[in-house]
């Protein structure tokens, strides 16, 4: 790709399942690798990905996820999510995909801005100290839209 009209990618991450978190991270990092600006707004369950105590314990969804090709009852058995998550993490490591904490560091070093959603932070009674130190700040959705106010900017909800 030589010249792209896409200048900035803004991601809204609303889920904490591993596959969604990685989708946002890989696309944000991929944008930077192409010289495109990138920012991530973590809202609702997406906030788990930037909570110090939770970010290394995210899971893949085994229930309500048809792509797992697993009967719902089976997916609900205790330990099944942990097992599926372990399998997926092993496959990701093979592809040299970093764990969540290291990925956040890479994103930060690559110049990706990381924002937490104010409403969701209030709703989950989170303190700033619960969130990663690399966070750029806590914003309202209005503030975040303000960051989209330029040519060649795309918003993506995950």
């Amino acid at each position: 790709m030589s010249e792209t009209k896409v200048k900035k990618m803004l991601f809204i991450l609303s889920k904490a399942t591993l596959e969604n978190v990685y989708a946002a991270f890989i696309m944000a990092n991929g944008a930077r690798m192409e010289g495109i600006e990138a920012e991530i707004f973590f809202t609702f369950f997406g906030l788990e990905a930037i909570q110090k105590k939770k970010l290394e314990h995210l899971h893949v969804a085994t229930v309500g996820n048809p792509a797992m090709h697993m009967p719902t009852m089976l997916g609900a058995i205790p330990g099944m999510e942990a097992f599926a998550t372990g399998m997926m993490k092993k496959e990701m490591e093979k592809l040299n995909m970093p764990p969540v904490g290291e990925f956040l560091e890479i994103l930060k070093d690559s110049g990706v801005s990381l924002w937490a959603c104010k409403l969701a932070v209030d709703m989950f009674h989170l303190k700033e100290t619960d969130l990663i130190d690399d966070l750029d700040g806590i914003l309202t959705i209005g503030d975040f839209y303000g960051r989209a106010n330029e040519d060649g900017c795309q918003l993506l909800y995950i």
């Binding site: 040299n96 970093p98 560091e105 890479i106 070093d109 690559s110 110049g111």
Partner: peptide, 19 residues
């Protein structure tokens, strides 16, 4: 294979400098 993570672990460069 080259990757941004590889740069981080290179010991010679860091990602910020590289960008």
């Amino acid at each position: 294979p080259l990757s941004i993570r590889g740069i981080k672990n290179s010991g010679t460069l860091n990602i910020k400098e590289f960008y």
